[in-house]
Design a protein around this nucleic acid. Structure first.
Length: 552
RNA sequence: GGCCCGUUCGUCUAGGGGUUAGGACAUCAGAUUUUCAUUCUGGUAACAGGGGUUCGAUUCCCCUACGGGCUACCA
């Protein structure tokens, strides 16, 4: 619909345009048709997956990967699949899967099919698909594309060392070295079957061709070529009976009819291996398209953003709070730090992608509409929290008073304070323009409801002088009789008081603020006074006059 | 070390053979706000370097430098 509309619009614009010779126009028209036809083809429903492994908290780069997958799925009316890649039992972390599910739900990245929702290709947890992978691995062995290998870790280590000693650039296990190792290619077949029957530990390795250039077309990076001598005979099935990522990933993507593999750049080096696997399994013609995303880098640009950066850098990198089950250490999440999911998504979308226009604020539907894989950049993007904060502020500003009210009322009820709805609404109105996070409603606005117990020393030293004291003393007396006690009335009285004393209002305003709030800065003071109310204002002024002393 | 990918203001990026190299965040200054914040206006600020190709290169090609990724029976 959107595409058709845009097409019609441009067509119309072109026909109307007086510019260009007729012939030129025809060419341009043809071009336009071709490009939109291409666009339609690219818009055909897509099946994409987000496939994290439950080894800890999902980090923010993973959320971005999920987001890009999701955007493409929604844009094309396609399907977003969640697959859990839990083939490494030793790295499994309890709670991680639930964490992933909850994070995606919070972010608004909806899963159509997969863990948590089910679907036609269930199960979606790789540990539960174990038997499937074995079948394909055995098939590869039977067809000569893979082989059994019996080498122990120690033997592999020895090989590695000897290669290194020889000045080796050769892979530890590949076409150059496999002939010297203990595997079904070198051992007599009787020996192989004996070992297999006996229950010796073994792995299944892919037999990578010796001399071939493997081509890979990446939607983001273009054509990538890797020589097969650079790829080692990767383990497909581990000795514990589990597949490695490479096998499980390719098998599942094929079986689940994935059309686009959108994942981090760290997978680019093994992508040619995956191409080889698709070929060996006879699935070359239905191989998905690849798009390898630029990485999210640490703020200093050195290294990819990692879990360790979380609290060292002073900003979250996990979507939600995460308590490490081993260390019991709590790491704060974006949600708990006050980031709004729509702001985080908007920020994340722009880390490595942009629409090519000058619009920066995008709702989710707008992102879905504007997103294009082709417009994803190639270079790694540093993670800069400043911009995330700005996005958050923008989205927070758009929130209604009703949306924000709970943040304030929760704090108030926690303190057994009951405040009228209109007062809360008034407080939010003056506070919301100044804050970046919802919790700042309280940190910035607490004084509206609770009298200050301390005063900012530096402000007092600068602003609390004889003039201020004179004005505040007179003002306090005048306020006792002020009726009604509203912002305009209170302002009027203040102006009259200062005029009578021949002192500029501006000169004493900060002292007044200090007396009322304990601080030198804050929201509109007159409205604040209305919220505090006559009784509170007078009491606070009296307290301040007693407590603060004029320093000469 | 080897292989792969990359490099436009401090950061995210637009652009692309001839542009005053555009925007946003951050920063600085001014205006508004009788304070601060918000808002508005303006400023500082970038094509990594060297060779080609070309009338012309930031844009295309090569090399170098730098950065990143991978190099596990981890994903």
């Amino acid at each position: 619909m959107g595409v058709a509309g845009a097409f019609a619009h441009r067509l119309l614009a072109m026909v109307r345009a007086p510019k260009g010779a007729p012939k030129e126009r025809v060419i341009r028209l043809a071009w336009l048709c071709i490009s939109y036809l291409w666009g339609f083809l690219a818009m055909s429903p897509v099946r994409v997956r987000f496939a994290p492994s439950p080894t800890g908290a999902l980090h923010i780069g993973g959320v971005r990967t999920a987001l890009y997958n999701f955007l493409l799925a929604r844009q094309t009316g396609g399907t977003m699949i969640l697959r859990i890649e839990d083939t490494d039992q030793s790295r499994y972390v309890p709670g991680a899967e639930e964490y992933i599910l909850e994070s995606l739900a919070w972010a608004g990245i909806h899963i159509d099919e997969g863990v948590g929702v089910g679907g036609p290709h269930a199960p979606y947890r790789q540990s539960e698909r174990k038997q499937l992978y074995r079948q394909f691995a055995e098939k590869l062995v039977a067809e000569g594309h893979a082989y059994y290998a019996f080498d122990t870790e120690a033997e592999l280590e020895t090989m590695r060392k000897s290669l290194l000693a020889a000045g080796g650039s050769t892979l530890p296990y590949g076409s150059q070295t496999r002939a010297q190792m203990a595997n079904s290619l070198t051992l007599p077949s009787a020996e192989t079957s004996l070992r297999l029957q006996r229950g010796d530990e073994y792995v299944i390795r892919l037999k990578v061709p010796a001399d071939e250039t493997i081509h890979l077309h990446d939607l983001i990076r273009g054509d990538v070529y890797v020589h097969s001598s650079q790829i080692d005979d990767k383990v497909l099935m581990k000795s514990d009976g589990m597949p490695t990522y490479h096998l499980a990933n390719v098998v599942d993507d094929h079986l689940m009819q994935i059309s686009h593999v959108i994942r981090g750049e760290e997978w680019l080096p093994s992508a040619p291996l995956h191409v080889l696997l698709y070929r060996s399994l006879g699935w070359a013609d239905t191989m998905p398209q690849f798009a390898h995303l630029p990485l999210l880098l640490k703020p200093d640009g050195h290294g990819k953003l990692s879990k360790r950066d979380a609290d060292q850098m002073g900003f979250p990198i996990f979507p939600l709070n995460w308590t490490d089950p081993k260390t019991n250490e709590l790491v704060k999440g974006f949600r708990e730090s006050g980031y709004l999911p729509e702001a985080l998504l908007n920020f994340l979308a722009f880390l490595g992608w942009n629409p090519g226009t000058e619009q920066e604020l995008f709702t989710l539907p707008e992102l879905i509409n504007a997103f294009q894989l082709e417009r994803i950049g190639k270079a790694g993007a540093r993670f800069d929290i400043q911009k995330a904060k700005w996005f958050n502020q923008q989205y927070l500003k758009q929130k209604s008073v009703a949306d924000l009210a709970p943040f304030l009322t929760a704090e108030l009820t926690a303190r057994d304070r009951s405040v009228s709805e209109t007062t809360v609404a008034l407080a939010i109105t003056i506070l919301k323009e100044r804050i970046t996070f919802p919790h700042e409603l309280w940190s910035e606005g607490e004084f509206l409801f609770v009298a200050p117990t301390t005063f900012d020393e530096s402000v007092a030293a600068k602003k609390w002088n004889a003039e201020a004291v004179a004005v505040i003393r007179a003002y306090k007396d005048a306020l006792i009789a002020t009726e009604p006690f509203t912002a305009p009335a209170v302002k009027d009285v203040l102006e009259k008081t200062t005029q009578a004393l021949h002192i500029g209002t501006g000169k004493i305003l900060q002292a007044l603020r200090l007396a009322l709030t304990g601080r030198g800065t804050g929201p509109d003071l007159m409205i604040a006074m209305e919220i505090i109310g006559r009784e509170g204002v007078v009491a606070r002024l009296e307290h301040a006059l007693k407590t603060l002393t004029v320093k000469s």
